[in-house]
Design a binder for these strands. Structure first.
Lengths: 197, 197, 197, 197
DNA sequence: TATGAATGAGGCTTCATTCAT
DNA sequence: AATGAATGAAGCCTCATTCAT
């Protein structure tokens, strides 16, 4: 009946992708306004022209949209971090370019996630994968002596803690480069002093 | 004919205090297992031998128990931090005694809060009051030159981020003194290198 | 130990009667404000310095206080109606004195019962007993030819309907004597025209 | 492939209307048996094959169903009253046709509302609108001298009181036409005797 | 695939009432 | 008799999810 099924399919694909995006966009807004905890699937659907049943064609649950949202962010930030680090030739360069990339990303996405009651922690597997990447680069950097050797678990924890806590400052309006330089200085000085593991 | 009404009252008071404790203990467990977000008042009651209505004789809502729990922790940790700092005569002493007191406290309370999905952030007004206290001491320490002058907002954020993120490591079994020494070294080295505000 | 137990008992009696009155007074206010439907026993107790358990020493339930309240009113209004009628020597006198007595009573008790959503119908057994009395007097009056013979069930219904509906007007501020005269005229003219049963 | 979406829609509409009717019917029975005050949404749902949540797809609360029920009755009775009055050429005709229409309506709907504890007063805005209509017609009738001039507020109150109180008699089995004639005679005789306002 | 009504489990809370003191 | 905390049934309502169309 249809001579161009593939085109039709293409159109459908497009609609599907659009619906998925519609839901994700709504979820971003809703999570931002209500926090993950008190946001409901209904809230997300209501922020959408779609019907409630349609949600379940794309996501199994609220958790899954949340995941997808975090993955999306991680996917966006990882290449920027990777690229930033790849150019580093010194400990300072390594840290500063990483922090700058990260806080600039946070600054660019400020509006989206007002992060009310419950902070929007980027600790999904996808995001953590980003940090694993960081860890590998750290270790490589240690090997290359860009960074001093140090207890990797604690170092990672500390980097994450500093990064996310300062991210809140950036979300509230702090200048991302100033913040990045602060973090860089802290770690640059601090790492030298760390006890060897 | 009776003559000891105060004893009767005493017993009742005792029961009341016990019930309150029972609910708080259950809440600690439940929040630990499910996170604040998905825990429900019913979950808390179910973890208790009490009746559902009894909960509302003590707390108006889930939020209120949570508050009480955080306040309780803050109330316990603050005097220890204060005491630790009061004895400090050097930057190193100041930091090390603070971190040790904090991570030891975390280690002692390890069991209670498995903290899965949603981390159990100690960011109630009471706890924050504890940090305000810290800030004042920091500033006093800066004045006394125990600590170098630095952007206080960022410094606070960074201390909090490091403290809570490393607290997770301690909860998962890391030695609190090792962690405290790590943090101390990091900041001792890092603070020197920080840009002046 | 006590040389005058009877006096002590007397004091207790007094307290008991006072408590009963306290509860009734609170109930009057609460029913007036919330209506019987949405008023709760708790509301009544809260409007009282007494403890919740004490309520049950005096009344078995909300219904019972309500009853008591209505009985109280009926008890107060019946002798006045009786007396008013006893003096009547004509149909007009019979009706007018009855209506005046009733609406004056309503006017005197205006404040107490704002009667919101659900009207405060005086249809308890006690009050109805008052109307049975009225009916007997009506029949006696018919026999004495003060009133024309008419279908007694319908006549009663109509008297009650008119009385309570006009009582609302009085509660809202209408002059009780004007209202009584209106009702008297209506029935005086109307009764003559009624079909014989 | 399909071609009759409108039919599908039609069926759904039908089911929706049916469910609404199911709930209204159940509410009629339940309010009749328990009175508005003590009836609960649960009671209504239980008198239905529907699920609890379904109730809330149709009505926001018990109050809303009650409203709908009263409006339904008012909507049904008003045109009949209007039509009855429009044909009147005399005071007697005006009153008799109105009362007959009203009590016949009550008689037809007898079964539905056993009205125990709390009478099912038809005093919703919709019903009152019906009486406002009556009032306008009364005034017009006074102007046309079908009815004597009289205090309109009291006259209305009295008409309503008589109508609803006699309605109870009709619900309990009295012949609606006999009752209507009784009321007509009462007012026909009574109105002449009323004091001018 | 999209729709949106139906479902019923389950959340929160209040209530009347009991009962130890 | 008075107290007031404890009780648990029961109210109201929202939610995630299913499923007929």
């Amino acid at each position: 009946m249809d001579a161009r099924p593939s085109f039709a399919a293409g159109r459908r694909e497009l609609t599907k992708a659009q619906n998925r995006e519609t839901i994700l966009a709504a979820a971003r807004v809703v999570f931002g306004q209500l926090g993950f905890a008190s946001a409901t699937v209904r809230d997300i659907i209501r922020a959408t022209p779609l019907a409630s049943g349609t949600f379940y064609n794309y996501f199994k649950s609220k958790e899954e949209v949340y995941q997808a949202l975090r993955d999306e962010q991680a996917l966006a930030v990882r290449p920027r971090l990777r690229q930033a680090r790849s150019a580093a030739t010194s400990a300072e360069g390594f840290l500063k370019s990483s922090f700058r990339a990260f806080f600039q990303f946070v600054a660019e996405n400020r509006g989206g996630t007002p992060a009310p009651a419950q902070r929007f922690r980027l600790d999904s597997p996808e995001v953590l994968a980003g940090f694993v990447e960081l860890r590998k680069d750290e270790e490589a950097a240690m090997t290359r002596s860009l960074l001093p050797a140090a207890n990797p678990a604690l170092l990672s924890a500390v980097l994450i803690g500093v990064a996310f806590e300062l991210a809140e400052q950036v979300k509230e309006g702090a200048n991302p480069d100033v913040v990045a330089d602060f973090a860089t200085a802290l770690f640059l000085g601090g790492l030298k002093a760390l006890p060897k593991p």
